[in-house]
Design a protein around this nucleic acid. Structure first.
Lengths: 183, 183
DNA sequence: TTTATCATGTAAATTGTTACATGATTTA
DNA sequence: TAAATCATGTAACAATTTACATGATAAA
């Protein structure tokens, strides 16, 4: 939130940024965002201003304070946040033998492959669009765009290996099935 | 937990499994595990038995019930759990421009690279040991070992791309620095 | 006139972390 | 005798999700 609030944005705007640019590695619901904005303002990390909106209720925009900027910097200086990932589909994969029907396991992997390849397609679309609209892509980007591009690069790499892994895994499950039927 | 409790294990055992075999994609603290075991027993998903231990307090082992087994299966049949990942270091990377000193960003990436390459080494060690002790590795594993091996395979692939991405990113930040100094 | 989008929030429940608290046995 | 490991748990707090609740405007 501190990272996004260099310029003033509403809770609704922040949600859109989560969905548009950060969804490869972070999500948050509006019901988490709104209370947190209030709490951060109480703590002096943000300031807010109410203003008219084109549609719907009054829009309240938040912006980080000097204290907020400092806190963001010290978070970055603390070093990489690691070791907290939880990947639900890998936890499931680990225990897939409990299905006791390899066809169900293949189905699981195919569903996962579909999800990941759709995701890959959407990242590739985002990259194509970026390349088409920004002549500096990817080697002459502004500071503001460069680091986000690094995360897109990682998103693409990560999702590609995910798809490959699904393909490899499906082939290996089939192979085991074939061996079992021969025996 | 349901996946692990096909055979009876204590909370302490479960914690060790998290640290040894699942830590690439899931972690849990003892202070979460113990209350959850009790809650799941209350819900009829687990049964427990107290027994003597070699050291320390009485050991209580839990095992899943028929209802627990069914719940595990229906979780697996619901399809892959996706879209919930939160990758802290990528959230930080996205906002690294806020450091306003590229050397600090390089340091960040180097720290991350160290973490990931240590992790890779430990996964490779685990694989080497597995290969040395199990003549069926990796193509003739039992059902019980096959799916866990798939998650190890993914862990290796994922961490390798992470290390490569760090290297690529460090080079690109340096490149930008050099261009800036020439200008 | 229905649906989508804009826009804000609260309430209840669940989940998870950090810190605290205890105590036995084995090994260095 | 100190540290490591085995082993269990509680308390306080923090974070997060799901469901609920409202209502305006614009486009199909």
């Amino acid at each position: 939130m501190l990272g996004m609030l260099r310029e003033p944005h509403s809770g609704y705007d922040i949600k859109k940024t989560f969905e548009k640019s950060l969804r490869s590695f972070w999500r948050a619901e509006l019901s988490q965002i709104y209370p947190l904005l209030q709490k951060m303002e109480d703590e002096g990390l943000l300031t807010s201003k109410a203003g008219a909106s084109e549609k719907g209720p009054t829009r309240r925009v938040y912006k980080r304070s000097a204290k907020g900027r400092e806190q963001l910097q010290s978070w970055l200086l603390e070093g990489p946040v690691v070791g907290t990932e939880r990947i639900g589909y890998l936890a499931q994969t680990y225990f897939l033998a409990n299905l006791k029907d390899d066809d169900k396991a293949i189905e699981f992997m195919q569903d996962l492959r579909t999800y990941l390849s759709d995701w890959l397609a959407s990242l590739e679309d985002a990259e194509d669009e970026w390349r088409a609209n920004d002549p500096g892509y990817p080697d002459k980007l502004s500071d503001e765009s460069f680091y986000p591009q690094l995360t897109l690069d990682m998103g693409l790499a990560k999702v590609r290996v995910g798809v490959e892994w699904c393909d490899r895994s499906i082939a290996r499950i089939r192979d085991r099935q074939a061996k079992r039927n021969n025996a």
